[in-house]
Design a protein around this nucleic acid. Structure first.
Length: 516
RNA sequence: GGGCCGUUAGCUCAGCGGUUAGAGCAUCUGCCUUUUAAGCAGGGGGUCCCGGGUUCGAAUCCCGGACGGCUCACCA
């Protein structure tokens, strides 16, 4: 503690920490190591609950005591003292079980240890499983083992941590006291695990491609820059793995996927964290339509297996992951959700011309229209984002993206201005983006050149020319469909979380100001 | 970056110009051998985020700052 900090500042906290340090000393004086190396557990709390939770008192009593004897470790999350008997709530982070400690059950030594326990301490309880007369599953303690001290007071046992800043900055505290937070991250883990099993079971190969890239490609976003000293070269943290995964398709793996972090040096919001997790999967000899079908299967299957239903609560609403999802072209979406635009509903025929698009954008309230540089596809996409995206609650594949904003996608065979691309919207968020991959090296080179031209004009999120990628395509990439799915947003949907920070264990935070 | 809101005990919060800033939980002391947000009795604990201003008087009003939340912009 800095010497210029007045002692009173943290007197109450200091007092409580002091009490806990004193308790730790007493425990050591009793002959218990404060931080022993291991505990010979017979089971965890969850195991005890799984084994006995379904049995009533009579059924448990019918089992011989020797078969009910356990040694179970856990964190003490409640202490109810009743004179010469004490109830402890013991948690393993998933379940709780009660320990019933009587002075005559653990002896003077055990009792002395118990009296120095604080909320948050780790202990091991050896004893016999039974139910109290109120029916609570409990372990009647015969011996206590001290396992680790908690030197700081835990947050309010009933309200937990509501200060969202602290929840994020000190997730370990949030996790100790919030079952809901633990459940959120368990569901997230199960989502990822399901995805791996889904793709592994369908012959996909899980791969890992570079996070540090010389040319940050595969998406339109500003990258983070770093530097490799030995090579004396700047490197970029990847904004997407896309171009490497397609090199692997060219190399001969017909189905690949990767679940890993992307980094984008952009704003932070309830839907954006600078580092986020993306699933990308590529299927040779498939097109966008096939990817959409596979996506429906993946998401509906994940919901059913992990949550037991395809009907997911989302605030006051319900999202149905039951396949098939709705398909809607971008133009139809703009017309459908542009009906109530002041100054007149958006008409389909307007969307066919640049002038029409500009007029529609003006009526829709789009600001500084000139920033779209008279590119029809950009105007249409902007109209879509303004009018339609905020309305797409139920899973909806928006198809027929403008080719100008899809430089890595194939165009439709019947319309060179339209990409064979889709995005999946759920809960008014973009969840996935996929397309039939452009595999003509000359056309790809052409589109890279157009991107570089836009970059020169000041669009610092336009793509860079990746010559090696074009060379890879020139070796012949089979027809392929690819897709990216935002895992964090999927986790939001599966856990009814309104902020991406609620599904990222340690979201990026501004450093706390020095001093306070 | 703009707008709105927030920051008071370890935690959750009340107090919103007028005695010495409160409550519940936590902590400390005492009682209690089947309780469960245990209970009962008593005690301690505060730079009211930071800095300036207005005022006889500021947690409270004003200005600036820090951090956070929501939102808009940005993120095609």
């Amino acid at each position: 503690m800095p010497e210029d900090t007045p002692q009173q500042t943290e007197q109450s906290l200091a007092e409580q920490v002091g009490n806990r340090r004193a308790a730790r000393s007493r425990i050591v004086d009793l002959g218990h190591p404060a931080y022993p190396n291991r505990f010979a557990a017979t089971s965890l709390v969850s195991d005890v609950v799984a084994r006995w939770g379904g049995s009533d008192a009579a059924a448990i009593d019918a089992v011989p005591e020797e078969e009910r004897r356990v040694a179970v470790p856990g964190r003490v999350l409640a202490i109810r003292k009743m004179g010469k008997a004490v109830f402890l709530d013991l948690s393993d982070g998933r379940q709780r079980v009660q320990a019933y400690v009587r002075k005559d059950g653990v002896g003077d030594g055990g009792w002395a240890l118990l009296e120095s326990l604080d909320l948050g301490d780790h202990v091991g309880v050896a004893g016999v499983v039974f139910r109290t007369r109120t029916g609570e599953l409990s372990v009647k303690a015969e011996a206590l083992t001290f396992l680790a001290k908690c030197l700081r007071p835990l947050p309010d046992k009933w309200h937990g941590l509501t200060d969202v800043e602290r929840k994020y900055r000190q997730r370990y505290v949030d996790l100790i006291v919030s079952e809901e937070t633990r459940r959120t991250f368990e569901i997230r883990a199960r989502v990822v695990s399901y995805i791996r099993r889904f793709f592994d079971g369908r012959g996909f190969l899980e791969v890992e491609t570079p996070m540090m890239q010389l040319i940050p490609g595969g998406a339109a976003a500003r990258p983070f820059v770093t530097h490799h000293n030995a090579l004396d070269v700047d490197l970029y943290l990847r904004i997407a793995p896309e171009l490497y995964l397609k090199r692997l398709i060219t190399g001969g793996f017909p189905k690949v996927y990767e679940i890993n972090r992307n980094f984008r040096n952009e704003g932070i919001s309830t839907q954006h964290n600078p580092e986020f997790t993306m699933l990308e999967f590529y299927t040779a000899y498939a097109d966008a339509r096939d990817q959409m079908a596979l996506t429906e299967e993946l998401l509906a299957g994940a919901a059913r297996e992990i949550l037991g239903t395809t009907q997911l609560p989302w605030g006051d609403e319900t999202i149905s992951f039951e396949a098939p999802f709705r398909r809607l072209s971008m133009k139809d979406a703009v017309v459908e959700y542009g009906r109530d635009v002041p100054g007149g509903a958006i008409r389909a025929d307007e969307l066919a011309t640049l002038e029409g698009l500009k007029g529609a954008a003006e009526r829709a309230g789009v600001e500084s229209i000139e920033r779209f540089g008279d590119v029809p596809g950009k105007l249409l996409a902007e109209l879509f984002e303004t009018l339609a995206e905020p309305n797409l609650l139920q899973p909806t594949f928006v198809v027929d993206y403008p080719a100008e904003i899809s430089p890595l996608a194939k165009t439709r065979p019947d319309d060179p201005r339209t990409a064979d691309r889709f995005e999946l919207f759920v809960g008014r968020m973009e969840l996935a983006n996929g397309f039939s991959e452009l595999n003509d090296p000359d056309e790809q080179a052409e589109k890279f050149r157009a991107q570089v031209a836009e970059r020169t004009r000041g669009d610092d999120e336009a793509m860079l020319f990746d010559e090696d990628y074009v060379e890879a395509l020139s070796y012949g990439m089979p027809p392929t469909a690819g897709e990216g799915v935002g895992i964090d947003r999927l986790a939001m949907l599966f856990t009814n979380s309104r902020s991406i920070r609620d599904v990222i264990l340690f979201p990026l935070m501004r450093p706390k100001a020095a001093g306070r």
